[in-house]
Design a protein around this nucleic acid. Sequence first.
DNA 1: CACCCTCGAGTTCA
DNA 2: CTCGAGGGTG
Length: 753
Amino acid sequence: MTDAEDIPTEVRHRAVELAKELQEHRVRYYDNDAPTISDGEFDALMRELEGIEERYPALRTPDSPTQTVGGSATSTFAKVDHLERMLSLDNAMNEDEFDEWVERLVKDLAGAEFHFLCELKVDGLAVNLLYENGELVRALTRGDGRTGEDITVNVKTIAEIPHRLRDDGGHDIPELVEIRGEVYFPVEAFDELNAKLVEAGDKPFANPRNAAAGSLRMKDASVVATRPLHMVVHGIGARRGFTIDCQSHAYDRLRAWGLPTARHNKVVKSADEVKKFIRYFGEHRNSVEHEIDGVVVKVDEIPLQGRLGATSKAPRWAIAFKYPPQEVNTKLLGVRVGVGRTGRVTPYAVMDPVVVAGSTVEYATLHNQDVVKAKGVLIGDTVVLRKAGDVIPEILGPVVDLRDGTETEFVMPSHCPECGTELRPMKEGDVDLRCPNAQFCPAQIRERVAYLAGRKALDIDGLGYVAATALTQPLEPAEPPVKNEGDLFGLTLEQLMPIRVVVRDQDTGLPKLDPKTGAEKEMDFFATKATAKKPSEPKKIAHTLLAGLEAAKQQPLWRILTALSIRHVSDTTARAITGEFRDLDRLADATVEDIAAVEGVGPIIAESLVAWFAEDWHREILEKWRAAGVRFVEEGGAEKVPGALTGLTTVVTGTLAGYTRDGAKEALEEAGAKVTGSVSKKTDFVVVGDNPGSKYDKAVSLGVPILDDEGFAVLLADGADAARAWVAARTGDGTAEGAGEGADTAPEDTAGN
DNA sequence: CACCCTCGAGTTCA
DNA sequence: CTCGAGGGTG
């Protein structure tokens, strides 16, 4: 045993500091529903303290945050004791820690056979419902685990929670039972609520969990009733007149009584299966209706739970596997606005760079001024940031309690940040502001040129974003070589070679400075050798670009049309239109009615096209292109051999062996199938590769046939009927799913991988 | 006219 | 990936 005297002073101080800080954060979290640090940061502090106490057990006092639970249960609601203590759970932060827990379990149970019950850890507010003779008599918050707050009135407004347990005849209603569960706020409803709060001048919630907690503590139950709260049951406390052998069976019973049980629970035998469950939902976190911050693994057999017992803080028969936080706090340094190719002005947030869900994030779009207002964020705020769908950064809201009064409101600029033209909405009542200077705004020209070179349009080698910028930027005092897209095909080697571009930092976008002179660094961009495919004959970017432009002149007509950046006309619509109008000049002279006759094109798109062609400077672009040899007619005559897959609608997700995503798409379209971006009831097949996104889940839930590499090959080679037969054979012999409900979401159907 | 599908547009990072 | 909005259908 270490004596208290042996502990270095700085360690002792750190421990005291950590304990104090953790306790403060707990009060903010549990009592005020207004945490100022993220869960991840909290966990890190807790781990540090645990580490210290591990080394110097003398510091592990009974009132240390590592030994206590929850907040202090202070508020206006009456304080009531739980009949049985609500413990918290020990955490496992990775699979190794989970393995350690399992090892200990096996040892303690000394060979007794047991099962694991896996449950999703819903990120909400823990509540305790007391039913006496089937009647809901009391609902408490968790509080400090021993005493909670009486929120019965508010809880009764939650539709999912029965006021009286349903007697289904088969099972007697117990004399007394405490039901533990989590109340949560659905993710989709969260943004809506915050917008309303801000509008009414109230402070927004930082995340859905706080929204749930805050809603449950409101004084006016009639307002609570308007909040779309839900609940999932995850445990049983005190009970009388009610015995159970397994926790999973207990849930069945609760469901029969009318209580909301989780749909994703699963009982498994081995630790490996548990890990599979954990990994599965780690990847599909966002396809569940509520936020998940981990998985709770329990020993299913109740007698064994009793044998394992509990520490003062947490049961030994359960552990919470925590996913790395995908929600994080950072500082909103400012809001800038960008101008898109259609002139739309979009505000975006610039933040202190932080790591979220595996990558460093610095920017996040704010869509438009209404969204900025609805979120209630001010410049200088600490904001909560997450990755929507694990990809796109999204600001959830401000941490209002960390404001110091220096924060400022974002004001949408009235003039275009790049050309100074006054911004205005396109139509009356439009939310989006646009720069009306389509002809001369350098931002719009740059963005249009970059888009035109992109994969959806002319797909020009040697013309990426940097080149597009270099070509369209005015080089004072000279005009840029490309004043608009009309000049593109007239570019010459002599024009390109001398163009210099400022070297910019990849992260900041600011020019790099020479460390000695302080001057901006420049390079001869187009004279640089392309680091491309054939190192045997290195070509300069200029040559690549000229060859790319030459090739672009022969691109199919739909690509030419897409390249024009006409509003509402992108690749798909362009294909539909050029399929009918096989000549761009004929399209240019057509009326709104003519164009609207095309399938998939209505009056608004048709009007947009007619208006575009009516513009003189647009016509000039076309004439320059024509003079340069761009082909305006679709070749190959009108006959189109109907492919074997005509009439099928398919969706591709994930990466397929031997195909790029676009390659797979093209192969399908080649055969006549339609490839769309989202799964619906009308989808015939979903082709799933590695790392599928949410489309896969959607397909499973809608029961749409799923094809992997192999099934995809069958579809291409032998047609739709063969593919359906393949699917039928697969589901027939493969993973036999257990009967009963819940079979739709279990992770066993990973047949696609 | 009220749905449900789709498409377009803007977006982030490695 | 997600929003909003256009187009088509019942």
